[in-house]
Simulated scan of single mutants.
Amino acid sequence: MPIDLNADLGESFGAWRLGDDDALLELVTSANVACGFHAGDPVTMRRVCARAAERGVRIGAQVGYRDLAGFGRRRIDIDPEDLTAEVIYQLGALDAFARASGSRVRYVKPHGALYNTAADDSGQAGAIAAAVAAVDPELLVLGLPASELERAARGAGLAFVAEGFADRTYLPTGRLVPRGQPGAVHTDPMAAVAQAVQLARFGTVTAVDGTRIEVQVESVCVHGDTPRAVHLVREIRRTLADAGIEPAPFCA
Protein backbone atom coordinates (compact mmCIF):
# COMPACT_ATOMS: atom_id res chain seq x y z
CA MET A 1 0.00 0.00 0.00
CA PRO A 2 1.48 3.42 -0.93
CA ILE A 3 2.26 6.06 1.70
CA ASP A 4 2.54 9.80 1.30
CA LEU A 5 5.73 11.55 2.42
CA ASN A 6 5.33 15.17 3.41
CA ALA A 7 7.66 17.86 4.70
CA ASP A 8 7.29 21.37 6.10
CA LEU A 9 8.80 23.70 3.50
CA GLY A 10 9.02 27.38 2.63
CA GLU A 11 10.04 28.35 6.15
CA SER A 12 12.78 30.80 5.14
CA PHE A 13 12.14 34.49 5.77
CA GLY A 14 13.98 37.33 4.08
CA ALA A 15 17.73 36.76 4.40
CA TRP A 16 17.16 33.93 6.90
CA ARG A 17 17.35 30.48 5.29
CA LEU A 18 15.93 27.33 6.84
CA GLY A 19 16.10 23.86 5.32
CA ASP A 20 16.83 22.69 1.78
CA ASP A 21 13.50 23.07 0.01
CA ASP A 22 14.80 22.18 -3.45
CA ALA A 23 16.39 18.91 -2.34
CA LEU A 24 13.35 17.88 -0.31
CA LEU A 25 11.01 18.59 -3.23
CA GLU A 26 12.89 15.89 -5.17
CA LEU A 27 11.95 13.35 -2.49
CA VAL A 28 8.57 14.15 -0.91
CA THR A 29 5.15 13.71 -2.46
CA SER A 30 3.42 16.53 -0.55
CA ALA A 31 4.74 19.91 0.60
CA ASN A 32 3.32 21.76 3.60
CA VAL A 33 4.18 25.34 2.64
CA ALA A 34 4.40 28.03 5.31
CA CYS A 35 1.97 30.86 4.64
CA GLY A 36 3.77 33.82 6.17
CA PHE A 37 2.40 33.83 9.72
CA HIS A 38 4.80 31.51 11.53
CA ALA A 39 7.43 31.53 8.76
CA GLY A 40 7.82 32.23 5.07
CA ASP A 41 7.41 35.32 2.95
CA PRO A 42 5.84 36.06 -0.46
CA VAL A 43 9.04 35.42 -2.43
CA THR A 44 9.62 32.10 -0.67
CA MET A 45 5.99 31.04 -1.04
CA ARG A 46 6.06 31.77 -4.75
CA ARG A 47 9.35 29.95 -5.30
CA VAL A 48 8.36 26.81 -3.40
CA CYS A 49 4.96 26.62 -5.11
CA ALA A 50 6.58 26.96 -8.53
CA ARG A 51 9.12 24.24 -7.86
CA ALA A 52 6.55 21.94 -6.28
CA ALA A 53 4.34 22.36 -9.35
CA GLU A 54 7.26 21.55 -11.66
CA ARG A 55 7.87 18.30 -9.79
CA GLY A 56 4.24 17.24 -9.39
CA VAL A 57 4.44 17.59 -5.61
CA ARG A 58 1.07 18.33 -3.98
CA ILE A 59 0.85 21.71 -2.27
CA GLY A 60 -0.66 22.08 1.18
CA ALA A 61 -1.18 25.26 3.18
CA GLN A 62 0.64 25.05 6.48
CA VAL A 63 -1.28 27.59 8.53
CA GLY A 64 -0.06 28.80 11.91
CA TYR A 65 -0.39 31.36 14.63
CA ARG A 66 0.73 34.91 13.85
CA ASP A 67 4.09 34.32 15.58
CA LEU A 68 7.17 34.87 13.41
CA ALA A 69 9.36 35.52 16.45
CA GLY A 70 8.42 32.21 18.05
CA PHE A 71 8.26 30.22 14.79
CA GLY A 72 4.64 29.41 15.62
CA ARG A 73 5.64 27.15 18.49
CA ARG A 74 3.94 29.20 21.21
CA ARG A 75 0.27 28.64 21.92
CA ILE A 76 -1.91 31.70 21.47
CA ASP A 77 -5.33 31.98 23.08
CA ILE A 78 -7.16 33.46 20.14
CA ASP A 79 -10.87 34.00 19.61
CA PRO A 80 -12.18 31.26 17.28
CA GLU A 81 -13.66 33.80 14.87
CA ASP A 82 -10.30 35.57 14.64
CA LEU A 83 -8.53 32.26 14.05
CA THR A 84 -10.96 31.36 11.28
CA ALA A 85 -10.25 34.68 9.58
CA GLU A 86 -6.49 34.25 9.91
CA VAL A 87 -6.60 30.73 8.45
CA ILE A 88 -8.69 31.97 5.51
CA TYR A 89 -6.15 34.76 4.96
CA GLN A 90 -3.18 32.38 4.91
CA LEU A 91 -4.93 29.81 2.75
CA GLY A 92 -5.96 32.42 0.21
CA ALA A 93 -2.46 33.84 -0.04
CA LEU A 94 -0.80 30.50 -0.68
CA ASP A 95 -3.46 29.38 -3.13
CA ALA A 96 -2.82 32.49 -5.21
CA PHE A 97 0.85 31.56 -5.52
CA ALA A 98 -0.01 27.92 -6.22
CA ARG A 99 -2.42 28.88 -9.00
CA ALA A 100 0.10 31.31 -10.45
CA SER A 101 2.42 28.29 -10.70
CA GLY A 102 -0.17 26.18 -12.53
CA SER A 103 -1.17 24.18 -9.46
CA ARG A 104 -3.45 24.75 -6.46
CA VAL A 105 -3.62 24.13 -2.74
CA ARG A 106 -5.09 20.69 -2.13
CA TYR A 107 -4.99 20.39 1.65
CA VAL A 108 -4.46 22.29 4.89
CA LYS A 109 -2.22 21.36 7.82
CA PRO A 110 -1.81 23.42 11.00
CA HIS A 111 1.73 24.16 12.14
CA GLY A 112 3.50 23.81 15.46
CA ALA A 113 1.58 24.99 18.49
CA LEU A 114 -1.61 25.37 16.46
CA TYR A 115 -1.29 21.74 15.33
CA ASN A 116 -0.93 20.49 18.90
CA THR A 117 -3.60 22.81 20.29
CA ALA A 118 -6.12 21.80 17.63
CA ALA A 119 -5.53 18.16 18.54
CA ASP A 120 -7.20 18.71 21.92
CA ASP A 121 -8.95 22.10 21.81
CA SER A 122 -12.36 21.79 20.15
CA GLY A 123 -12.72 25.56 19.78
CA GLN A 124 -9.54 26.06 17.80
CA ALA A 125 -10.07 22.84 15.86
CA GLY A 126 -13.54 24.00 14.89
CA ALA A 127 -12.19 27.39 13.83
CA ILE A 128 -9.71 25.75 11.46
CA ALA A 129 -12.36 23.45 10.00
CA ALA A 130 -14.75 26.38 9.53
CA ALA A 131 -12.08 28.29 7.61
CA VAL A 132 -11.29 25.39 5.29
CA ALA A 133 -14.96 24.67 4.63
CA ALA A 134 -15.63 28.34 3.88
CA VAL A 135 -12.83 28.52 1.30
CA ASP A 136 -13.29 25.14 -0.42
CA PRO A 137 -15.06 22.09 1.03
CA GLU A 138 -13.08 19.90 -1.38
CA LEU A 139 -9.85 20.66 0.49
CA LEU A 140 -8.48 17.95 2.76
CA VAL A 141 -7.29 18.44 6.33
CA LEU A 142 -4.05 16.78 7.46
CA GLY A 143 -3.48 16.13 11.16
CA LEU A 144 -3.18 13.74 14.08
CA PRO A 145 -5.62 10.84 14.07
CA ALA A 146 -8.24 10.56 16.84
CA SER A 147 -7.94 14.28 17.49
CA GLU A 148 -10.36 17.17 17.94
CA LEU A 149 -9.20 18.41 14.54
CA GLU A 150 -10.28 15.16 12.93
CA ARG A 151 -13.68 15.37 14.63
CA ALA A 152 -14.12 19.00 13.63
CA ALA A 153 -13.08 18.37 10.02
CA ARG A 154 -15.41 15.43 9.59
CA GLY A 155 -18.19 17.35 11.32
CA ALA A 156 -17.77 20.14 8.76
CA GLY A 157 -18.01 17.62 5.92
CA LEU A 158 -14.30 17.73 5.12
CA ALA A 159 -12.10 14.75 4.27
CA PHE A 160 -9.44 14.12 6.92
CA VAL A 161 -6.02 12.54 6.33
CA ALA A 162 -4.26 10.94 9.31
CA GLU A 163 -0.60 11.83 9.70
CA GLY A 164 2.32 10.26 11.51
CA PHE A 165 5.82 11.60 12.21
CA ALA A 166 9.17 10.03 11.47
CA ASP A 167 11.29 12.47 13.45
CA ARG A 168 9.11 13.12 16.50
CA THR A 169 8.60 10.88 19.52
CA TYR A 170 5.22 9.80 20.86
CA LEU A 171 3.49 9.64 24.22
CA PRO A 172 1.50 6.50 25.11
CA THR A 173 -1.66 8.55 24.43
CA GLY A 174 -0.75 8.86 20.75
CA ARG A 175 0.11 12.54 21.11
CA LEU A 176 3.57 13.92 20.34
CA VAL A 177 6.08 14.55 23.10
CA PRO A 178 6.06 18.36 23.55
CA ARG A 179 9.09 20.05 21.99
CA GLY A 180 10.02 21.60 25.31
CA GLN A 181 10.66 18.17 26.81
CA PRO A 182 13.89 16.18 26.35
CA GLY A 183 13.75 13.57 23.61
CA ALA A 184 10.90 15.19 21.68
CA VAL A 185 12.84 14.83 18.41
CA HIS A 186 14.72 11.74 17.27
CA THR A 187 18.43 12.54 17.21
CA ASP A 188 19.32 9.16 15.69
CA PRO A 189 18.40 9.23 11.98
CA MET A 190 18.01 5.46 11.87
CA ALA A 191 15.46 5.60 14.70
CA ALA A 192 13.45 8.05 12.61
CA VAL A 193 13.74 5.82 9.53
CA ALA A 194 12.62 2.79 11.53
CA GLN A 195 9.66 4.72 12.93
CA ALA A 196 8.57 5.85 9.47
CA VAL A 197 8.68 2.29 8.17
CA GLN A 198 6.83 0.99 11.24
CA LEU A 199 4.08 3.56 10.65
CA ALA A 200 3.84 2.78 6.95
CA ARG A 201 3.99 -1.02 7.17
CA PHE A 202 2.23 -1.82 10.42
CA GLY A 203 0.23 1.24 11.41
CA THR A 204 1.89 1.35 14.81
CA VAL A 205 4.46 3.44 16.65
CA THR A 206 6.51 2.71 19.76
CA ALA A 207 5.96 5.34 22.45
CA VAL A 208 8.69 6.68 24.72
CA ASP A 209 7.70 4.21 27.46
CA GLY A 210 8.01 1.25 25.09
CA THR A 211 4.28 0.88 24.51
CA ARG A 212 3.35 -0.04 20.97
CA ILE A 213 0.28 1.95 19.97
CA GLU A 214 -1.89 1.80 16.87
CA VAL A 215 -1.53 4.86 14.62
CA GLN A 216 -3.10 4.22 11.23
CA VAL A 217 -1.79 6.92 8.90
CA GLU A 218 -1.86 7.84 5.22
CA SER A 219 1.03 10.30 5.36
CA VAL A 220 4.38 10.46 7.18
CA CYS A 221 6.04 13.80 7.94
CA VAL A 222 9.67 14.82 8.23
CA HIS A 223 10.24 18.38 9.40
CA GLY A 224 12.29 20.44 6.96
CA ASP A 225 14.28 21.95 9.84
CA THR A 226 15.25 18.58 11.29
CA PRO A 227 19.05 18.12 11.06
CA ARG A 228 19.98 16.14 7.92
CA ALA A 229 16.34 16.13 6.80
CA VAL A 230 17.28 15.42 3.17
CA HIS A 231 19.38 12.41 4.14
CA LEU A 232 16.57 11.22 6.39
CA VAL A 233 13.88 11.35 3.70
CA ARG A 234 16.20 9.69 1.19
CA GLU A 235 16.81 6.81 3.61
CA ILE A 236 13.10 6.52 4.36
CA ARG A 237 12.34 6.23 0.64
CA ARG A 238 15.06 3.63 0.16
CA THR A 239 13.91 1.53 3.13
CA LEU A 240 10.27 1.75 2.08
CA ALA A 241 11.21 0.63 -1.43
CA ASP A 242 13.03 -2.37 0.04
CA ALA A 243 9.77 -3.24 1.82
CA GLY A 244 7.78 -2.90 -1.39
CA ILE A 245 6.14 0.40 -0.43
CA GLU A 246 6.09 3.17 -3.01
CA PRO A 247 5.59 6.76 -1.80
CA ALA A 248 2.58 8.42 -3.45
CA PRO A 249 0.51 11.53 -2.68
CA PHE A 250 -2.71 11.06 -0.70
CA CYS A 251 -4.67 13.37 -3.01
CA ALA A 252 -5.11 13.73 -6.75
Results as ranks from 00 to 15, higher is better:
119 A>R: 09
63 V>D: 02
189 P>L: 13
64 G>Q: 02
101 S>M: 01
142 L>T: 09
97 F>Y: 15
27 L>S: 15
171 L>F: 02
34 A>D: 04
81 E>I: 06
194 A>Y: 00
184 A>F: 05
8 D>C: 04
102 G>P: 04
16 W>R: 14
206 T>V: 12
150 E>C: 08
16 W>D: 10
88 I>Q: 10
88 I>N: 05
10 G>V: 05
132 V>D: 08
103 S>F: 01
176 L>C: 05
225 D>L: 06
243 A>F: 10
187 T>N: 13
197 V>W: 03
74 R>A: 05
203 G>I: 01
138 E>D: 09
37 F>H: 10
105 V>R: 04
190 M>P: 05
62 Q>H: 15
239 T>G: 10
245 I>Q: 09
86 E>I: 01
153 A>S: 09
115 Y>F: 11
249 P>N: 13
77 D>E: 11
99 R>L: 00
153 A>Y: 08
203 G>T: 04
57 V>Q: 07
116 N>V: 09
177 V>R: 11
109 K>T: 13
129 A>K: 08
37 F>S: 00
109 K>F: 02
129 A>L: 08
64 G>I: 00
78 I>L: 15
112 G>Y: 00
49 C>G: 01
111 H>Y: 02
71 F>L: 12
181 Q>P: 06
25 L>E: 11
153 A>Q: 12
30 S>I: 06
103 S>V: 04
13 F>W: 10
252 A>L: 14
116 N>Q: 09
221 C>E: 07
221 C>Y: 11
194 A>K: 13
168 R>D: 05
106 R>Y: 09
195 Q>M: 02
94 L>D: 06
113 A>S: 11
2 P>F: 09
213 I>W: 03
208 V>Y: 00
29 T>H: 12
134 A>M: 08
29 T>I: 08
119 A>H: 04
138 E>H: 13
207 A>H: 02
203 G>P: 05
183 G>V: 07
238 R>L: 14
116 N>I: 06
86 E>T: 04
82 D>E: 09
207 A>E: 01
27 L>W: 13
135 V>F: 14
118 A>W: 03
251 C>Q: 11
149 L>F: 06
202 F>R: 14
167 D>K: 04
248 A>T: 12
75 R>E: 09
211 T>S: 15
239 T>L: 09
63 V>A: 01
172 P>Y: 01
171 L>K: 07
51 R>Y: 03
114 L>Y: 01
109 K>P: 06
